[in-house]
């Protein structure tokens, strides 16, 4: 005998749904319009939704908190060229019936592209209808086509560009369409892109360049946001000094939290940097030992870092303290609140 879920009172439904995984809630929403309405009555409140869009697949993660670690899968849609008649079922996605199938022990919904060209929009509408809150939308784009198809969202706060052939105008257009961006992450090397001094990317609160290479110097020169992460950086001495000096003299970077540069830094480089900035040994008093690193950039988790071996510098006129922590493969400059 089945457990008659719909016959519980609303308060018990609320308790039950606290224990359902996002994937199960999504699957329930496909069972019937009545079940979807039941979910809507629960008034689920997600903090964020992350759409990973590839040419033939869309995955969605959701989180009840801002914490990166709390994200869990909601669903995956995969475009296929054929569906076995035996496995074919019809579900309503975003109010439209679509023919699809599900793999064994898998939450992947397989659909036929010719009949469902608007799968992303249907999925977006469907997921929007399940949440009472207006979660922030994050995009992880894996191809130029995924960038152009992403214009269906009302607002986007974070984007990760995971493909190589990305042009500067595409980035600027995306940022113009979605001006409320909190963070950007670039997988590709931006060296040859025509990112101007006044490009909107430098004003983003959180910026992570996974292949920063020669762009590192420009990033340090123009970045005015809160957190900058540079991987594979080709770092030169003067842009880093100038960046820290700008913060120290309060000429910019008023909101700076951290700059993390993943690069090889020789002992001579680090010694020269600390000398130039007149950095002080930590006295154990002026600031805490542990730094609460909170990058607020997609795919970058917050953590506590030990800064007992870091060197300190202070802003002019008795302003904030900042610390430089140098290791063989990484230089971090952080600001204490």
């Amino acid at each position: 005998m089945p457990l008659l879920l719909s016959q519980f009172p609303l308060l018990i439904h609320i308790e039950i749904f606290k224990h359902l995984e996002f994937e199960s809630i999504f699957m329930l929403s496909l069972c019937s319009e009545n079940t979807k309405r039941l979910i809507q009555r629960i008034r689920l409140k997600a903090k964020k939704l992350r759409y990973t869009i590839d040419d033939d697949q869309i995955s969605v993660l959701g989180g009840f908190t801002d914490d990166e670690r709390d994200l869990e899968s909601i669903t995956t849609l995969k475009c296929v060229t054929s569906i076995s008649r035996k496995k074919e079922i019809s579900v309503k996605l975003g109010g439209e019936p679509i023919k699809c199938s599900f793999g064994r022990n898998s939450h992947t919904l397989k659909y036929l592209e010719p009949e469902n060209e608007d799968a992303l929009e249907l999925l977006k509408n469907h997921i929007d209808s399940l949440f009472h809150s207006k979660p922030s939308i994050q995009l992880k784009l894996h191809s130029p086509d995924s960038l152009s198809s992403s214009d269906i969202f009302d607002d986007v706060t974070d984007t990760s560009f995971m493909f190589e052939n990305l042009d500067a105008s595409g980035i600027e257009e995306h940022l113009t369409n979605y001006p409320n961006h909190h963070s950007l992450e670039f997988f590709s090397d931006l060296t040859k892109r025509e990112l101007k001094q006044h490009s909107q990317i430098w004003e983003i609160e959180g910026l992570a360049l996974l292949g920063s290479y020669l762009t590192s110097s420009r990033a340090m020169k123009y970045f005015s946001g809160r957190c900058l992460i540079l991987h594979n950086a080709e770092i030169s001495y003067s842009p880093l000094i100038q960046m820290i000096r700008k913060w120290q003299k309060k000429d910019g970077l008023h909101n700076l939290h951290a700059v993390v540069i993943h690069t090889f830094a020789s002992d001579d480089f680090v010694d020269a940097l600390l000398d130039e900035l007149n950095a002080l040994d930590w006295d154990g008093i002026r600031r805490p030992k542990m730094f609460n690193y909170d990058p607020r950039i997609m795919n970058n988790s917050q953590c506590e870092s030990d800064f007992s071996d870091a060197y300190d510098i202070q802003q002019e006129d008795g302003g904030k303290w900042g610390s430089i922590l140098a290791a063989k493969d990484q230089i971090a400059f952080v600001v204490w609140d």
Binding site: L3, L5, L20, S24, S106
Partner: peptide, 26 residues
């Protein structure tokens, strides 16, 4: 109790959930 109910739904398709929770089709 709700955890028991939640565990019933893990890794299930809509068709399977209809059976487990007695959900009629539209």
């Amino acid at each position: 109790c709700c955890r028991v109910i939640g565990d019933m739904a893990k890794d299930k398709t809509p068709e399977e959930l209809r059976i487990i929770y007695g959900i009629p089709t539209d």
